[in-house]
Nucleic acid binder design. Structure first.
Lengths: 229, 229
DNA sequence: TTCCAAACCTGACATTTGTCATAGTATCCC
DNA sequence: GGGATACTATGACAAATGTCAGGTTTGGAA
């Protein structure tokens, strides 16, 4: 696979596209590529990050451990997304853990390259700002959903979200397969509750399952459930 | 009150402090000052914003209406905070409504001044970025709290938050008085539940009330409740 | 002041959700 | 292939929370 940032298609999706040729060259020279196995962490809550991670392949869950020992997944990040930006910008230790949901390939970019460009290239900074503004909006939406919708509504929403953002495989199953526990951590509920609702949706013909895999059968009725019918 | 941004103390708290003298002069020349009465909106969800609002006095609640007709308050903004930034930056209509919790005095700054500076002054952009990174972290924390803590824990946390961020008056009551409904909308619960928990906390000697006003009597035990004891 | 609307409060009850216990099932490693 | 281990599933129950239905108090306008 191409290993120069200048030619990396992934870059099209993130703020790196606002970098100048020279800046990109510098990033490319200082970056390192890593593979992360399913279940392994990119970084953990509290870690000091010395750079950011640009996702080339695979999916990472960004989660935070709560006092009662349960993880809450705040975001699922895939190809093109840059992780750790927030911590590097505010010069704080990581607020979230990033764990690979499946095998990943990522590029590590040292923070110096980022900080340097942030101070010199307003277009880049603005681009990062736009991304962060988008993340913030999404986070606000999650807050409203999680506090105002029932678990059933949020489960339906989660399936539609996975369909929209990660697509389906040839057999009509969601391309991103999460464990029941991960699903419950996205939705913010007990694993047993998540499983029960999966069973219910299946019984009602809204979804199908095959092992861990889940397929959407009746998109319209799932939408109706989200809206509260 | 001083009406030139250059001399406005409020500016110390927000990203405007990274503006150059000339930029600040331009902002000051184009800004307008408005007073907003308690209960009136600064802007509403879906509005196109032609600029941002810099809070000089008073407090605004940023909230979003959910399908079931209840508001979720996502943030309380007071002196020095800039509202509407996110929408102006992403050039989208407002994602949240901003309503005055008490009488407010705000400065409206046209988006042209902001956008102009964003493109020319990397320090300013970086400063805005830092603020947004902070907001994003807070939002992530809210997500975790709201989904992993009980209503009782979140109520206790809300009181401590109000104490920390808005202080107390001479008689030891929280300086920011919210209606029971607003409290329930911050916490994300039914108004009746909020009221019930207020009664309970009062009975247990954790807080005191006088009309709408709430005073913290036993900070330590409130902290313990937040932690789950 | 007096009245009215809005805000506050409480009880009874239904519903939702979490917890615990237990059993079935897949998966991984040797 | 077999056993250990983790994941999935389901029932029974308890706890938390929301809803509805009424009261009481408060604050502001006439």
């Amino acid at each position: 696979m191409e290993s120069r940032c200048e030619n990396c298609i992934v870059r099209q999706f993130n703020s790196l596209r606002a970098m100048s040729k020279e800046e990109l060259k510098q990033v490319s020279d200082s970056k390192t590529t890593r593979t992360i196995k399913k279940g392994e962490p990119l970084f953990e809550e509290g870690d000091k990050l010395n750079g950011v991670y640009c996702v080339r392949n695979g999916v990472s869950k960004l989660s935070k451990l709560s006092a009662n020992g349960k993880d809450q997944i705040v975001k699922l990040a895939s190809k093109g997304e840059v992780l750790g930006q927030r911590s590097v910008i505010s010069q704080e230790s990581a607020n979230l853990s990033a764990v690979a949901v499946n095998d990943m390939e990522v590029c590590f970019i040292p923070k110096e390259s980022i900080n340097n460009t942030l101070q010199k290239n307003p277009n880049f900074t603005l681009e990062v700002l736009r991304h962060m503004a988008h993340d913030l909006k999404e986070a606000d939406d999650v807050i409203v959903n999680i506090s105002q919708k029932t678990v059933k509504q949020r489960m339906a929403e989660a399936f539609l979200y996975l369909q929209n953002n990660f697509g389906e495989d040839a057999d009509g199953f969601l391309a991103l397969t999460l464990s029941r526990e991960d699903i419950s951590n996205v939705v913010g509920t007990a694993t047993e509750s998540a499983i029960r609702i999966i069973s219910e949706f299946k019984k009602k013909g809204l979804i199908q399952t095959s092992g861990k895999k889940i397929g959407i059968k009746d998109e319209r009725r799932l939408h109706e459930i989200v809206e509260g019918f």
